[in-house]
């Protein structure tokens, strides 16, 4: 890429962001306190996950820093607590807050990756089905129907089980993160495909698409440069809602022992491990990671709800 095209690109980005900043969406956003709060929470979570060493008071990867005399230290405000361990410590003296932050990193990575992959699959299939129609449409949408017969949870569990049976336990644990991502991604593509297909069907009939096709533009150009931008907004809303679904799915699968192994704990794995200590009274091992999870999902859901209403022209 040479200098002038970089300058053009920079100029374009600046122009686009200026347009976004002046748009109704931003002013709507700034006037919705719930949306601002939810966004702040999600942003905080994402930053913490991206830079865990900055946010976490202790390192959980460095085993030498753990002290067994801190094991099962209760939260700071309970007798026996220590201000160094605000939310207490686990069975090996690991700080719970730090474990949550490092676990969040894995949970969010899995969820974002799963959403990105299922968005890609769903959008491409939806575009193809809506644009070409005929047997391509029939094939894709029947596959979607079959999959929609089963809830995403069962589909993800089933994919996990198939991989386990096909490649054995060892391989499964080695690639646990990627298997989990694919399981969640493949369980969610239908939502995008259905949305995009319907919109593409409408857009394909519009004059601008006809004009582009008649002027001899290649089909892929018409699909991705003309139609895609016009179906992108609802896809964005679906993706936000699906992110909450993916976070819950990851945590749930890890909780029942089908997701991330304890060597690299995600939020769900932390709750699973902590669940074993509920009965003996060390409740903070499970309850705090769980609360962190609920707050995150709640914020994402609130943001998704707001986005859906804000982008819906009929509600204006």
């Amino acid at each position: 890429m040479n200098g002038s095209s970089v300058a053009t690109l920079g100029h374009q980005i600046a122009r686009t962001s200026a347009r976004v900043w002046r748009s109704d969406l931003v002013s709507d956003f700034l006037h919705a306190p719930v949306a601002v709060l939810s966004f702040a929470i999600v942003l905080l979570y994402v930053l913490a996950a991206a830079f865990p060493s900055v946010f976490a008071p202790h390192s959980v990867t460095d085993l030498a820093s753990l002290d067994f005399s801190d094991a099962f230290r209760p939260p700071a405000w309970i007798a026996g607590g220590d201000i160094r361990f605000v939310f207490g410590a686990d069975d090996q003296g690991r700080d719970i807050l730090s474990a949550i932050i490092y676990g969040l990193r894995i949970s969010l990575f899995v969820s974002f990756a799963a959403v990105a992959i299922s968005l890609l699959i769903g959008v491409v299939f939806g575009l193809l089905a809506g644009f070409f129609g005929g047997w391509i449409d029939a094939l894709i949408m029947r596959a979607a129907d079959v999959q929609l017969t089963f809830p995403a949870m069962l589909v993800a569990v089933l994919i996990d089980g198939v991989v386990r049976a096909a490649f054995g336990e060892r391989v499964h644990d080695q690639f646990a993160v990627w298997i989990l991502i694919m399981a969640i991604a493949l369980s969610g593509w239908v939502q995008y495909a259905r949305t995009v297909r319907g919109l593409t069907l409408v857009e394909s009939g519009r004059d601008y698409v006809q004009a582009a096709r008649l002027s001899g533009r290649p089909t892929s150009f018409v699909l991705f440069r003309h139609i895609l931008p016009n179906v992108a907004t609802p896809v964005f809303v679906v993706a936000t809602i699906q992110l909450a679904v993916a976070i819950i799915l990851e945590a749930t699968l890890s909780f029942v022992g089908l997701g991330i192994p304890p060597t690299q704990p995600s939020l769900g794995t932390l709750i699973r491990v902590g669940n074993g200590y509920l009965l003996s009274g060390e409740w903070w091992l499970a309850i705090f990671p769980g609360l962190a999870l609920v707050i995150l999902v709640l914020a994402v859901n609130l943001l998704g709800d707001w986005l859906r209403d804000a982008l819906n022209p009929r509600l204006k």
């Binding site: 909450a244 709750i271 499970a286 309850i287 769980g290 999870l293 999902v297 709640l298 859901n301």
Partner: peptide, 14 residues
């Protein structure tokens, strides 16, 4: 809204 955001396994645990 909390009911929708609460994973069922955590609800059961609570």
């Amino acid at each position: 809204l909390i009911g929708i955001s609460m994973p069922s396994f955590f609800m059961g645990m609570l």
